[in-house]
Nucleic acid binder design. Structure first.
Lengths: 157, 157
DNA sequence: GTACGGTTACTCGGATACCGCATGTCCGAGTTGATGTGG
DNA sequence: CCACATCAACTCGGACATGCGGTATCCGAGTAACCGTAC
């Protein structure tokens, strides 16, 4: 079970974008340059964020990506879901259907005790992610390194 | 991000084994037969559980797998870790090292704010898994279907 | 000086290869139980 | 009847194929800014 590393890229990029002027967009190439990431591949993930409404994309000169809404309204869960998709990590294959006394008409994704237990854990994970926003992360980073905002702001100009 | 379906197989198999006599072992072929699973592949996962001490394997006639310890001492986290490995789903690649002001000697897996936020969420997930044991699952199943223990017990004889 | 049309350069977006890991399968090493024989 | 050596069948364990999703890349469609020209 491994999360796409695009999630890490997306989160860092969102924080970086939160430091720029909300008005103007930053091209994917510039955003990738900050961390020496492959431009095209980062672009792919940014497109996913745009589809989710987290970013807004603009084409043409002076185009690029900018935040789609206030950083305080963007949770880490939003970003993770945009990149990884909405499905749970644990996917009940309903093997009880092939077991003794298994009924074909029952949705074991709901009724299976093990499935419920796993979903309970994933819910805790999602809740913890939903409780943290891009604004929270940004605030923590600024407290630790007050120079960071202006530094990356300059880097993205 | 997708969890191996071996986890589902392993959990169901552990619950099934908790219903058999602690003394005698059940071959992988018999365990696979219950849910019509591919024997060899299930066997591979059971080996992982044995390496983790969750199961004990015995070769030769009358051999097979049996629980390595009391079901109340086997948490869902134990099983998941045995199958999926100990690594976190989110793996910090420390891209901050290549960013502005990145220091090669700093371990950003510890210090990076985003990495910490993600680990916080995974900790919530692991905690939720560790709070549930095979015995808990078994108890719930028995309450819903009192015939289940004897049925599978007969199936594994 | 201003408005407008054409051009140019720049950006995203989706279609296209590549690769590593999960999935799936197989045969050999080791062990236990059964069996047959001799005392 | 009992002890023991031999045999045979059964089981796990790791080594060997296969397929799919994440990784990485490229080129085309569309757009906005710029520039030159005409009024």
């Amino acid at each position: 079970m491994k999360m796409s590393e695009g999630v890490e890229w997306a989160l860092h990029t969102c924080v970086n974008l939160s430091w720029t002027d909300p008005g103007d967009a930053v091209p994917a190439a510039r955003l990738a340059e900050v961390f020496s990431l492959p431009t095209a591949y980062l672009s792919k993930h940014l497109q996913a964020l745009a589809r989710a409404g987290i970013l807004i994309s603009t084409t043409g000169p002076r185009g690029g990506f900018r935040l789609g809404r206030d950083p305080a309204s963007i949770t880490l869960l939003d970003v993770v879901t945009a990149i990884e998709g909405p499905e749970d990590a644990f996917r009940c294959r309903q093997i009880l259907k092939d077991g003794p006394g298994g009924r074909p008409d029952v949705d074991y994704r709901r009724t299976c005790t093990i499935s419920q237990a796993m979903r309970k854990a994933e819910l805790a994970w999602r809740t913890a992610l939903a409780e943290q926003t891009i604004a929270d992360v940004r605030r923590t980073v600024e407290q630790r390194d007050p120079a960071a905002p202006e530094a990356t702001r300059e880097r993205l100009r």
